[in-house]
């Protein structure tokens, strides 16, 4: 016997109300994912019309070829760097712009604008800024009085950091917004009690405000980390995976393989990416949720 409330809820909201949402979910999310699994085991290509089952052929040839593992490594490094920079910038901005003054409101809007800009546009703008004869070197040259021509996007070691900073710059406004919301939820009484106990600003931040921001950190770190695993546009526009393949994210590799007409291999790679993100998501989110237990 169901409790009375539940019974009424059921007649208010019959299960078939789910159908429209479920249809969209199935057609746009479920089916593509299933296709992703199916085509990874075929020899689908642009060269012939028949699609045959090919077993684990794609997987063996991909894993025996070093490029996939290299791209996977680059993708992970990139994701970690983006997660770090985006959260550092976002948290810093949120703390700086915490008070609700007119100036702060205007500045918050300014920092949020990159979030709604096209990622490709951001990439191309930075590509122009960071060229050896670009604006950044021009400014540095004017400041130091010498001619500067640092190839910001030409280092096989540091360019991945530069593009991760660009990615973080684009999305830091979103992190800032979420951290701001988190800071607003902290109970004023707690802060006042700490102040009466003589805690200085740094202690207050370290011992009280940062731990209480745990839910915001969970969301920001998880979305930045897992979102940038799917990164493509900014890196494609700035470096196209270069120099020397050191910024070749898995998605850029997939794009290149698809362009060669090797559709099945490209699908296999996107399956590998999907599985990697899934495997990574669970422990990361679990760890971050655990931090929230102090609340």
């Amino acid at each position: 016997m169901l409790p009375k409330g539940t019974a009424r809820r059921r007649s208010d909201h019959p299960l078939w109300f789910l159908i429209p949402a479920l249809v969209i979910l199935v057609v746009f999310f479920f089916v593509p994912t299933v296709f992703n699994f199916v085509y990874a085991f075929t020899d689908w290509s642009s060269f012939k019309s028949a699609i045959n089952f090919a077993g684990v052929d794609n997987f063996t040839s991909l894993f025996s070829n070093g490029t996939l593992l290299n791209s996977l490594k680059v993708t992970l490094v990139y994701a970690v760097l983006v997660a770090f920079f985006q959260n550092a910038f976002g948290l810093g901005l949120a703390l700086l712009l915490e008070r609700d003054t007119m100036v702060n409101r205007a500045v918050r809007v300014a920092f949020f604008i990159p979030v709604i800009m096209s990622a490709l546009a951001v990439g191309y703008i930075f590509q122009a800024l960071l060229k050896p004869d670009g604006a950044l070197n021009g400014i540095l040259g004017a400041v130091f009085g010498t001619s500067v021509s640092i190839p910001w996007l030409g280092s096989t070691t540091w360019t991945i950091v530069v593009v991760a900073v660009v990615h973080a710059w684009k999305w830091m406004g979103l992190s800032m917004l979420i951290y701001l919301a988190g800071l607003k939820t902290i109970n004023e009484d707690v802060l006042e009690a700490a102040r009466l106990d003589g805690a200085n600003r740094w202690t207050m931040f370290r011992a009280i405000r940062f731990p209480l921001l745990a839910p915001a950190v969970t969301f920001n770190v998880a979305t930045a980390l897992l979102g940038s695993m799917n990164g493509f546009d900014i890196v494609q526009a700035t470096t196209e995976g270069g120099p020397g393949g050191t910024t070749e994210l898995l998605n850029i590799f997939i794009f290149r393989t698809f362009g060669q007409g090797l559709f099945a291999q490209a699908t296999t790679m996107s399956l590998v990416l999907f599985l990697t993100v899934t495997i990574l998501a669970f422990p990361v989110i679990r760890f971050l949720r655990k931090r929230e237990d102090v609340l």
């Binding site: 030409g154 096989t156 120099p243 020397g244 393949g245 050191t246 060669q260």
Partner: peptide
């Protein structure tokens, strides 16, 4: 993609 690999060589990664 011979040209990509050659560019990698010039950059020093291959």
């Amino acid at each position: 993609d011979l040209y990509i690999y050659l560019a990698d060589m010039i950059q020093g990664t291959k």
